[in-house]
Amino acid sequence: MSKKSILIIDDESEILNLLSRFLSRNPNFSITTYANPVSAISDFERTNYDLVLLDIMMPQMNGLEVLEKLKAKKEDQKVVMMTAYSTLDKVLKSHKEGATNYVMKPFSSLEALEKKVIEVLEQ
């Protein structure tokens, strides 16, 4: 697998730090993080990411709105939604809007998350 660029958008700095540290262990991953979805969207316009990990519940802009903006810019963008608030409604809506997959927070294990990231990147 060639080096893959991953963008993580989550308003919780602890989650960003945890995911960044863990996924950076994999030499095939280049990680960029944003706590502010508006800044992330601006960066997204200038940078090509192989995968976006996107939180659904954020105060500045919810993940479904961010997903819509990302997909408008790059229709085939792979996006994995992250949510602690598992409502079937939001998960179904994120799939309808083009999310590739989703994961639940708290994560069952970081290894399982990494496995899902690799699986989605290989699709």
Rank of each mutant, 00 (worst) to 15 (best):
L92G: 10
S24A: 15
K93R: 15
D43A: 15
I56T: 01
T47C: 09
P37E: 05
E45G: 10
G63W: 05
V66T: 07
F107T: 07
F44A: 05
L51T: 04
L51F: 00
I56E: 04
Q77E: 03
K69H: 13
L67P: 08
L110S: 08
A112K: 15
N48H: 10
L7H: 06
E97M: 12
M81R: 05
A84H: 12
Y102E: 04
V117H: 06
S86E: 12
V38R: 14
T100Y: 07
L19S: 11
M57H: 13
L23H: 06
K93N: 09
L54A: 00
N26R: 10
F107I: 05
I41M: 03
E45S: 01
T87Y: 05
L113C: 10
L53V: 12
S86I: 12
E114V: 07
D10A: 01
V38P: 03
F29I: 01
V52M: 02
R46M: 13
S39C: 15
T33F: 01
L67C: 06
E45V: 11
R25N: 12
K90W: 02
M104L: 15
G98R: 11
F107P: 04
D11I: 09
K78A: 00
K73H: 02
D10I: 01
S24T: 15
A112D: 14
P106L: 14
V80C: 10
D50V: 02
K115R: 11
L121H: 03
N28L: 09
S42W: 05
L88K: 09
D43P: 04
E45A: 11
L64A: 02
K69T: 08
I8L: 12
G98W: 08
S39D: 15
S108L: 14
V38Y: 12
S5P: 06
V52E: 03
M58H: 08
F44E: 03
K116F: 05
T32V: 13
D10H: 12
K78F: 00
Q123A: 09
